[in-house]
Design a protein around this nucleic acid. Sequence first.
DNA 1: TTGAAACTGTGTCCGTCGGATACAGAGTAC
DNA 2: GTACTCTGTATCCGACGGACACAGTTTCAA
Lengths: 244, 244
Amino acid sequence: MDRADAGGRADKRKLYELLWETPGTPRRGPRPTLTLADIARAGVAIADADGLAAVTMQRVAESLDVTKMALYRYVPGKAELVALMIETAIGEPPAPPPGAGWREQLDHWARQIYDRFRRHPWSIPATVGPRLPGPNEMGWLERATAALTGTGLRGAELLDVAVLLLGHARGLAQQDAATPADAPGQHREAAFTVLLRGREEHFPAVTAAVRSAAAHNAPDQAFDFGLARILDGIALLVERRKRS
Amino acid sequence: MDRADAGGRADKRKLYELLWETPGTPRRGPRPTLTLADIARAGVAIADADGLAAVTMQRVAESLDVTKMALYRYVPGKAELVALMIETAIGEPPAPPPGAGWREQLDHWARQIYDRFRRHPWSIPATVGPRLPGPNEMGWLERATAALTGTGLRGAELLDVAVLLLGHARGLAQQDAATPADAPGQHREAAFTVLLRGREEHFPAVTAAVRSAAAHNAPDQAFDFGLARILDGIALLVERRKRS
DNA sequence: TTGAAACTGTGTCCGTCGGATACAGAGTAC
DNA sequence: GTACTCTGTATCCGACGGACACAGTTTCAA
């Protein structure tokens, strides 16, 4: 049973303090050999190298030359460790290109977060489910909403746009992570072709689409394509609001 | 260590047979007491009730009045069981509304898949990472691409559109699942308000957006909003292709 | 009719995981 | 110096996924 399900309010409070408050260092007893940042970085390194499943309290502790149980002096449990890892991996939001309009800013924002997801594929499964956002995560959200301030969109819509772009970046990063690294050329089409073989009459439209895509052997532009459609749709709304 | 990481080719082949081939029933030995569909349904029921973490070989077996190890006669491992559960939960794709244009079809498609994700929140974390799509999943993709056939979009773009819509439905369903069920009114804003309190100067744009959203106490329309933007953006492209 | 073969479900065992608890040593404040 | 507090450790536990050997059951072939 995952503690995230049954843990309840106490765990959530612990996580909040861990993410949002810098602990006032106590002045008694031996100095800690580790810091939260150390632990988070060690976890990220392991996850980057061998995936999220390889992030074990045991292994994180070994990479820090400490016993497994020592980690529990810093982190209440594994869920909180992963939360810290996410904050570390996502990092601080990048500065928007100076003097850019809302569209360029959002385009930049989406590409940056897409890049983070691709550099840390484990963060995609790690960020599903009910979660408490950390300061860095909130910082990214701030940048996205700030980009749209003054466009005439409503408050809720600003948040909706951020969620929309984030979902797209996540989805595409996941698709990239799903394609094996040994087929650099036709990522997605190759996997589908095998599945569709002999079943063309069941999936005629997909078959046609895959064949057409393979024939034009265009590079994988799914992220750019979706991003352009989304921004087009937002631009349409901005224009409409401006006129009214 | 998760077998999905290190398992390699043999596991993938097993999973393919499991998802795509109806096994020729052997005629020797005692008749099986279970079917794959039984097991998948039992797993779905447990996941719907208590979450994905509650789906244990032990518990699935108990709910079927069988020993844990009996399940391994049907399913190579837990990863494959979850894959079967996903196929069962997603189900066959719905028939498109007759006589509808591409936009209505895609709108319907997105709402339907959004609904599936919301009815089975566990399927969101279950469908991350490298996966082999099953027949039902491919069926959904078929419907989406079929809706756009004849619009002048390229083959790769049809697939991109499906990925885009799927990502949106996933993202929003996840956000819904993250909001506690005891706050029916202002879902998202309530959680943010607590985090932003006392930090308004750090996140001015988010603060303003959240306050504005809370003031207009509009119902949660994030899914509708994003879907409309996406379809607007696609419509723009379709128009452009039609003219050229 | 009588094995032999094949298949199903069971019981037992193992390694690994997250985590609780008790304890020993280290450092600080009085 | 001594009491207190904090750190890291050692040991233990239950639950998990899974391997393996075995017993019972059904069908096929002689």
